[in-house]
Design a protein around this nucleic acid. Structure first.
Length: 746
DNA sequence: CATTTATAAATTTTT
DNA sequence: TTTATAAATG
């Protein structure tokens, strides 16, 4: 605990300690571990499964093991560390750095499965059928592609009901990741799509084909091709044997393919360490399965299992409440968490009138703890869905309480950022259909139809039957026949009249980025354009100079884009700031490809990631979805909207498994707290739109806290609750105001 | 007539 | 902030 606090306090403190007190290989960190943790840390060769309950020092153990391996002479670049987020990998590596030889962990391969897959496929992908210049589609891109195919196949006709793009993608992804027949998946998770199954099969078939035609991979492809890479003769063992040791965090949230990848990655070397807790498995919507943990000992023969049960994080009352929630779980795997942290303070169950009352109560509790010495950064507010924090955010802003929100809508999901990235992706991969589609439709006068026509005339779709001619049989090098960009520069297809000027500006902007000097055109198309470059002797084809560097490309694209988006978006001012932030991030990159890929695989999770170090010094509160709070801990935790319907979320109660996962989710939220835990229950719920009698209804406390469990909590009421119910007065006021208004047009 | 643009409705969790 | 439907435009 002490240790964790020092690390949280910042790198400065730790590095001083590391520099003066610890000689590189004294392994003094072993003394800070308990018996189980030490056994796990110093485990020798072979397979190891660490079952680590919440707050049992899982990360500490993994970090120690990492340091221990390096101290024992394992070469850092022969260690692969797979984590759930990039943040987790970076934090572990930085912590390990302070335990062993400084700088040594820099060479460790650390990242998410997807990020590592990307890295491996760029280098070794060719034998698996991947050219190294692919771009990665994020979820929205993949959904857009589903949508394009749906309309191409005429399945979006009026009157015909057909699953929408998100549903299509979800069903596809679930099928692929769970390695299960589509019919089964549809029966179980998408029963309302049963009638559309034939259409779905058709869409999925073209989806797979189209990804190849446009040289793009989706998230699932990264895993699938990594797996196939392992199975490829020659390269497979080469890739696998790079890594003497593999360490995997959050194993309860991996899926079947990821387990198969790990199997494939263990050929000559058999060393693998996985850490997980079945009680915290909350990603089944991504096809994660606890079978991976349960079957580990069979898949990796003779695996040793070590269980960590002492919780160092939470006080006994908090742990009692959390454990009670899990008591009711259908399936439990024997593990008794215990703590030595005594406390008189039970978790607080705070009943509030409604959401705004809840927001006030949260703010007041936060300020109270702040004044008692708990900084904002040691407090967090957790919720089930991104929009649950909307009212609170307004209240926090009103009171000038700084906060950063994790989860929910992300920076890269903002329309204007996606636009900017689409420009870059078109430049990086001229066959990227989704990006072209987006870019072209930005131009006034171009809608879906014209965009489709232009794309087909540009040749955005690669004909895979010509593929053998594209790749030279001898060198294996790709021979560029005629890329859509070249077509745009040399012989642009005509755009609709209304789009002429912007079209020509776009062409110029893209050409400038690539360092292409456009050929001089006949006066008709030249009259409106802003072409300042003149090619030598009016040659019919374009010529090439040096390509602009990444920041300059962004400047150039912004110059083209800004006038357009000021037209399209209302609050352009805020958006310009975002684009500036994007440029700031880009400043750290030399390679355009790496920049684009990093943004899709490890998108900034909150605005805090974007701000410079000066801002991160500031004390701020954390707002987070429960999913994003995985692996984190705070002194004081506030869980809001603990009403049935929100936790468990109505929408996810399709089956029993759904309910069980919601229970684990609630468990995860409770176990984030170290010293103090608040649970807020607003019992009145307003709904706009449908005018049900008086616009609100009453909801129940979450079913995960039944009556017999209440004694584990200190039950309190918000100040508003104590006062008389003011509803009657309120509606009277409203009536009076309405009456006055009505007089105005009587 | 085919497309584009304006309007209204609805929104889980994430690599 | 996106997406299905209606109105408007060339």
């Amino acid at each position: 605990m002490r240790y964790a606090e020092v690390v949280r306090a910042g790198h400065g403190v730790e590095s001083i300690r590391g520099f003066f007190l610890a000689t590189p290989a004294d392994k003094s960190y072993l003394a800070e571990l308990n018996a189980q943790q030490r056994a796990a840390t110093t485990f020798g060769d072979g397979a190891l499964l660490i079952i680590a309950g919440a707050g049992t020092g899982k990360t500490k153990t993994l970090v120690s093991r990492l340091a221990y391996l390096i101290d024992s002479g394992v070469s850092p670049d022969a260690i692969l560390l797979l984590t759930f987020t990039r943040r987790a990998a970076a934090e572990m590596l930085s912590r390990a750095t302070h335990l062993c030889e400084p700088g040594a962990t820099g060479k460790v391969w650390g990242g998410t499965f997807h990020a590592i897959a990307n890295r491996l496929l760029r280098t070794y992908g060719r034998p698996a059928g991947i050219t190294s210049d692919f771009t990665v589609m994020d979820q929205a891109d993949a959904a857009d592609m589903m949508n394009l195919i749906r309309s191409d196949l005429g399945l979006n006709k009026k009157g015909k009901r057909f699953p929408k793009k998100e549903t299509l993608l979800k069903a596809y992804s679930m099928t692929v990741n769970a390695q299960t027949k589509l019919t089964e998946i549809v029966d179980k998770h998408f029963p309302w799509c049963k009638k559309s199954q034939d259409g779905m099969k058709e869409v999925f078939g073209s989806y797979v084909k189209r990804k190849r035609e446009h040289n793009v991979l989706d998230y699932d492809d990264l895993l699938l091709f990594w797996r196939s890479l392992c199975e490829t003769e020659g390269v497979g063992p080469q890739v696998a044997d790079r890594f003497e040791h593999i360490l995997v965090d959050e194993y309860q949230d991996t899926n079947a393919i990821q387990a198969q990848i790990l199997l494939g990655m263990r050929q000559a070397y058999k060393n693998i360490t996985v850490v997980g807790d079945d009680a915290q498995s909350i990603y089944s919507f991504r096809a994660a399965t606890i079978r991976n943990i349960l079957d580990f000992s069979q898949q990796f023969a003779g695996a040793k299992v070590i269980t960590l049960e002492q919780n160092y994080r939470s006080t006994i009352p908090i742990l009692d409440a959390s454990n009670a929630v899990m008591e009711y779980a259908k399936e439990r795997y024997t593990k008794e968490l215990w703590s030595q942290r005594k406390s008189e303070q039970k978790p607080v169950l705070m009943t509030c009138v409604d959401e705004s009352d809840q927001s006030r109560a949260v703010c007041e509790a936060i300020i109270e703890h702040l004044e008692m010495g708990t900084p904002l950064s040691s407090q967090a507010v957790l919720f089930r869905a991104g929009h649950h924090s909307a009212a609170l955010e307004i209240e926090l802003a009103k009171r000038n309480i700084p906060f950063h929100k994790y989860g929910g809508l992300k920076f890269v999901e903002a329309a204007h950022i996606k636009d900017m990235l689409a420009f870059l992706r078109v430049l990086e991969n001229p066959y990227d259909q989704i990006s072209w589609f987006r870019v072209l439709q930005l131009l006034e006068g171009i809608g879906p139809k014209s965009a489709q026509r232009l794309m087909s005339e540009l040749g955005v779709r690669r004909n895979l039957s010509l593929r053998e001619e594209i790749v030279s049989p001898e060198s294996g090098e790709e021979i560029e026949v005629s890329s859509p960009l070249k077509c745009l520069f040399d012989d642009p297809p005509a755009a609709p009249a209304a789009a002429k000027e912007q079209y020509s500006n776009l062409r110029q902007a893209l050409a400038d980025c690539q360092g292409v000097i456009l050929p001089k055109r006949r006066k008709e198309s030249n009259s409106t354009g802003s072409e300042t470059n003149v090619s030598a002797d009016g040659e019919p084809t374009s010529s090439i100079t040096d390509r602009l560097d990444l920041p300059a490309q962004l400047d150039r694209l912004r110059a083209f884009y800004e006038p357009i988006f000021e037209e399209v978006y209302s609050n352009a001012f805020v958006r310009v700031r975002d684009i500036e932030q994007l440029q700031e991030i880009a400043g750290k990159y030399k390679s355009r490809q790496k920049f684009i890929t990093d943004l899709t695989l490890d998108p900034p999770v909150s605005t805090s990631d974007l701000a410079g170090p000066s801002l991160s010094e500031e004390d701020f509160l954390v707002l987070s979805t429960i999913h994003s709070a995985k692996g984190c801990e705070w002194d004081v935790v506030h869980v809001i909207h603990v009403a049935d319907g929100d936790i468990p979320l109505d929408m996810s109660l399709g089956d029993d498994e759904g309910l069980e996962e919601e229970r684990r989710l609630f468990y995860v939220s409770l176990t984030r707290a170290k010293n103090t835990l608040y649970i807020y229950f607003p019992f009145r719920h307003y709904h706009r739109g449908r005018s049900m009698s008086d616009g609100h209804s009453y909801v129940q406390l979450t079913r995960f806290l039944p009556e017999e469990m209440r004694h584990l909590f200190a039950v309190e009421c918000s100040p508003d609750m104590v006062e008389d119910d003011s509803l009657a007065g309120d509606s009277a006021t409203i009536d009076r105001v309405d009456e006055r208004l009505n007089k105005l047009w009587e």
